[in-house]
């Protein structure tokens, strides 16, 4: 009897720690999911206004989603959506091209300005983003890009022009592709251009997809730059500014639940993209850590 007890005692303790660990994880997971549950519930809530006295809605409705996509009077969500979509498509094409080009050059080719360029990008990255943002605004203004429909072009430029500084993750990935592959191709008479387009590009499909999607997401979630460039031009609003405005004093009572609906609508695709992309994100980061 004594022997079995002795054998059971540690496993008993183990079982208790195990139980506690799982309990702690469950509580933490609940805390982490709470705001998400709350916003989803709010998006189906029938009562208006932001201040309610119960966590769960009293009655449920789909009207918030309908309002979001049909009410074009004050905050025109469908138009914001198309604005953002157009900006995002162009911005992501340009930035992907920039990022991949720079990453390839820095990873595969050796030239005099390589190290200075990398140091320069690091130093420029230390400046607070807004410092250049305000001056960029004036620059775009002198180019006449801050009026009416031109704001879209200004935003596309703003989101993609400096993409060449964000090469680290893509370069980290390209560094993991063995150099012997390109050396062999060059021995066989391939030009660098052919190595780039026919060999490295197909091999780095994951990182290209990753870059495309992250730069596609940026205009949807950026609020600050869009706010500075759009100002009061409500016709050019992007989704992020629209959602932000829905929470301002004048609109919050009417629009709070619609805001929740908008947040859900925007978050679902972005969340899916992120969940699919997390592998590359992790690889990129650990690649950067390894150097």
């Amino acid at each position: 009897m004594k022997n079995t007890k002795k054998k059971n005692a540690p496993s008993m303790r183990k079982r208790i720690t195990n139980l506690l660990v799982h309990l702690a994880l469950a509580i933490l997971a609940f805390i982490w999911l709470l705001p998400i549950i709350w916003i989803v519930l709010t998006s189906f809530r029938a009562e208006k206004g932001s201040y309610v006295n119960s966590f769960f809605p009293k009655s449920y409705t789909l009207n918030n989603y309908i309002k979001l996509f049909t009410d074009r009077t004050v905050l025109n969500f469908p138009r914001m959506f198309t604005n953002t979509l157009i900006i995002a498509i162009f911005a992501c094409l340009i930035s992907t091209f920039f990022v991949v080009s720079v990453a390839y050059s820095l990873s595969r080719m050796r030239f005099k300005m390589r190290k200075p360029y990398m140091n320069m990008a690091m130093i420029l990255g230390l400046f607070p983003g807004f410092m250049s943002m305000i001056a960029q605004y004036y620059l775009l203004k002198t180019m006449g890009l801050t009026e009416g429909g031109m704001i879209r072009i200004a935003l596309i430029i703003a989101y993609s022009a400096c993409a060449g500084m964000g090469f680290q993750i893509a370069k980290g990935y390209l560094d993991t592709i063995p150099k012997s592959i390109d050396e062999a191709a060059i021995m066989d008479g391939a030009t660098q251009w052919q190595v780039f387009t026919r060999i490295i590009m197909p091999l780095s499909k994951p990182i290209i997809i990753y870059t495309t999607l992250t730069s596609f997401i940026a205009p949807w979630v950026d609020f600050i730059f869009a706010n500075v460039l759009c100002g009061a031009n409500s016709k050019q609003f992007t989704v992020a500014i629209g959602l932000w405005n829905m929470l301002q004093k004048e609109y919050i009572h009417q629009w709070y639940t619609a805001f929740a609906a908008g947040a859900v609508v925007i978050s679902i695709p972005i969340a899916i993209i992120f969940l699919l992309m997390q592998k590359y994100y992790v690889e990129g980061v650990s690649g950067a850590v390894k150097g």
Binding site: F97, F98, S101, V102, Y104, S105, M109, F111, R114, Y117, A121, L124, F127, M131, S132, M133, I134, A135, Q136, Y138, L139, I157, A158, S160, A161, C162, A163, G164, M165, T191, Q192, W193, F196
Partner: peptide
């Protein structure tokens, strides 16, 4: 051999015009 020039010309131009010039200005 000079592919890096072709590839990096536009990105560097973008950084110069929309980052370095504005920063100098600020």
């Amino acid at each position: 051999g000079n592919l890096h020039i072709t590839l990096m010309a536009l990105p560097i131009l973008g950084i110069l015009v929309f980052n370095v010039v504005p920063l100098t200005y600020m």
